[in-house]
Design a protein around this nucleic acid. Sequence first.
DNA 1: GTCCAGGGAATCA
DNA 2: TGATTCCATGGA
Length: 289
Amino acid sequence: MKEQQYILKNPKTFELKDIFECGQCFRWNEQEDGSYTGIWKENVVNVKKEGQDYVFSGICKNGNLEEEIYTYFDLDRDYEKIKKELSKKDTYMKTSIQYGKGIRILNQDLWETIISFIISANNNIPRIKGIIERLSKSYGKKIEWNGKEYYTFPTPEELKDVTVKAYRELGLGFRDIRIYETTKMILEGKVDLKELEENPNTMEVREKLLTLSGVGPKVADCILLFSNLKRLEVFPIDVWVRRVMNDLYIQNEDETKVNKKQIEMLAKEKFGDLAGLAQQYLFYWRREA
DNA sequence: GTCCAGGGAATCA
DNA sequence: TGATTCCATGGA
């Protein structure tokens, strides 16, 4: 495959670190020159900031790198408008948005997002990334670019015959059986991913996701927000989000005792249909700053 | 050695 | 419904 290049000229909302380190994705890595290299679908791409522009170079399966980039990086959405709207809510939102002003929520592959966030359960980001790399190297397709080897995220078919024991040996820990069961459910058609992508009813899609093994409320919400399902109104609650919501708004002495329902209601009434974006700014700000 | 990580499922009240 | 406990692993 031939290398392609695309230059994104002076985008308004776009910062590499904010996009790739805000916790939504696991397969982008910073290079020595400050650029990032990552893989999605069968595209291997490096993004480098040059002045106010961004240079994308790499190899693209479908032959149209620009189109792939527009879809994946959600470039048709007006984040300036979203940030303006959320900044009006209160001073905390304004601060966290200023901190993560370059965040864009990627349109990630649904299947990959499901498996990635099952792996994320009670885990930390460096280890999640390591597990996903080993999973891809073991069962994905190899793509060579620039003298290096990259591996696509394995499809359900590519994981069809993988045993629970094999997962355990990859270091998946107690999540091994969940990956095994969920892959099986999808291969058997008990959950139809195409159907989920076409269903406009968020609660129906959420209920379906919750039937998958290893998918509870938080993982389901991450899938809804971070995959191409793109439900910007859902509000995933993990330990960091509970922490920051309690510090800012609830102020319970023991943060672990804060009711999830209470956080959910608060997020809905404060942030409305942009709750997912608000969650991401708060998460990134609290974790990094 | 202890604590913690983008939690979920099983169990029990 | 709601609270507790267990679940591998690796880094701090």
